[in-house]
């Protein structure tokens, strides 16, 4: 690779250094680092399966240059929960049958998590606006909405970091 450069930013709370090409996208960097929970769906910032959280806000990692993450805090699905301790959003999505093929779900989890951190009790309109960047082709979003409303009602993510 020509012109590779060092970047440093944190991923899921851990400070990291990366060697990147100038036009490497954050998605490709994350995936080659083994963080494959972030998906490649469209490559044009249109589907949301590549969603990650950067400094508390969701972004499309497929169109974000890795260098744009310099000095920032990146959160991926790998940082959100695990089998022993899933995030309430993950539990709700699973329990409500909102996971079909599952390809969009990491992005859905991250978008909802960022929303609830910013607005712990969103209105339905706010929910739809903040979730509008994550396409799902399987579910028709019904069960996803039910799961998100369940988490909002339980207040289990209110103000969560």
């Amino acid at each position: 690779m020509k012109n590779t450069r060092h970047l440093s930013f944190s991923v899921n709370g851990e400070a990291k250094e990366f060697l990147v090409a100038p036009d490497e996208k954050l998605l490709d960097l994350l995936r080659r680092e083994g963080l494959t929970g972030t998906k490649h769906g469209c490559g044009t910032g249109s589907c949301g399966s590549c969603t990650v959280i950067m400094d508390g806000k969701t972004v499309y990692s497929c169109i974000l240059y890795a260098f744009q993450a310099e000095g920032r805090a990146i959160e991926t699905i790998e940082g959100v929960g695990d089998f022993d301790n899933p995030h309430p959003l993950q539990t709700a999505l699973v329990e409500e049958g909102a996971v079909q093929c599952g390809f969009c779900i990491p992005g859905i989890v991250l978008s909802a998590k960022a929303l609830l951190a910013e607005i712990p009790q969103p209105t339905d309109a706010e929910l739809k606006v903040y979730m509008d960047g994550n396409l799902c082709r399987c579910t028709g979003y019904e069960k996803i909405e039910v799961a998100l409303h369940k988490v909002i009602a339980a207040g289990s993510c209110g103000g969560a970091k």
């Binding site: 949301g48 969701t58 972004v59 960047g133």
Partner: peptide, 12 residues
Amino acid sequence: ALHTSTQQIRNI
């Protein structure tokens, strides 16, 4: 802004 693209785009 409310009608521009999606939240991920609006964020950045």
